[in-house]
Nucleic acid binder design. Structure first.
Lengths: 179, 179
DNA sequence: TATCATCTGGGACGTTCGTACTAGTACAGA
DNA sequence: TCTGTACTAGTACGAACGTCCCAGATGATA
């Protein structure tokens, strides 16, 4: 096989992310990841010494991508005329285009509840959203909106339904008055 | 051993609930539940044919207890003078006294995202909160507050910190204006 | 008291898992 | 060109798992 260590590592991470989104972090196995990435089992243990490290690295990989997205949000919100409507649109798009990220985010949240070593990563993910909002809506409101949006995403995952953008915009607008 | 089939079944369910809260539904095993409940492995498979059935039954058991709690909430909110403050107090108490329920609730939400057969239970759990709120705040606001509170609980689990009751009351008050 | 379905306690089987290991291959630097 | 490190591919092994099974104990019913 053609040599491409970095690419291989990345393929393994992406396979792991896809599996976490599909079946949950608890169902992750070396073999499933290897099969998904199209590499032998030995490859996943070569690049990630333990299953735990593989899972954590995969979540960190997703968190990095999401952090990039959060920076785009910050720009969009900073430039927005109608902040609530913009936020609502961003969330709707996020859930439509990046459902796996959202799934991994909540897998991370729940896993962090009983695995303290994951908490910094979970808190950082959450804080990314707050940071995107803060410049326009004040710190307390930004926190409230962040928490609300996490609830919205969780609700959307459970109900597997698109969010109501108007409802969302009105709720965000209401929370923005907090500061 | 003294005969008490119903008690035994309940002990197994409670052990399973405790384990789900502690380590997540993905880490549940017949053997761990049996050890926790103080019964042989055969007992858990006797009362619950498959591990899946055991996990689902345990979540359903927790959901039932939570539904009872939701009815108490409804009464408390119906009788409240200051609804936002009451809701904030209820949530704070809930997180302090019933952290396991809250953990199981979110385990359920995330599991429901990739296991459609769990969705009715997850939706019912969420709707319980909405129903407790609806009589006092309109339907849209009740939904918004429910979603917000789920976000708050998730955030509290991740940060392992008590919620700020004042912040919470103000956010709830803001969302109550939605209808 | 005799009977029988229900429940108990524990062990057995086959599968899947994490991880370690080995032999071979490719490529960068001497 | 030679050499050693980094990587590949596949196998092996012990542990833990879900589930099945059965011999014995129990208690309601006849």
């Amino acid at each position: 096989m053609a040599r491409d260590p970095e690419g291989r590592r990345l393929r393994i991470l992406e396979a792991a992310c896809a599996l976490i989104a599909e079946t949950g972090v608890g169902a992750l196995t070396h073999r499933a990841v290897a099969a998904r990435a199209g590499v032998p089992v030995g490859a996943t243990t070569y690049y990630f010494a333990t299953l735990d490290e593989l899972a954590t690295s995969a979540i960190a990989h997703a968190a990095e991508l999401a952090a990039g997205e959060a920076r785009l949000w910050q720009e969009a919100i900073a430039a927005a005329e109608d902040v609530p409507a913009t936020v609502a649109a961003l969330i709707a798009d996020y859930l439509a285009d990046h459902r796996p990220w959202s799934l991994i985010e909540h897998e991370l949240y729940v896993a962090a509840a009983h695995r303290p070593e994951l908490r910094p990563m979970a808190i950082a993910w959450s804080d990314g959203t707050t940071a995107a909002l803060s410049p326009r809506v004040g710190p307390a409101a930004a926190r409230a909106v962040t928490v609300f949006l996490d609830g919205v995403m969780l609700d959307a995952l459970v109900r597997d339904a698109p969010v109501d953008a108007d409802f969302l915009a009105r709720a965000v607008a209401a929370l923005m008055g907090l500061d």
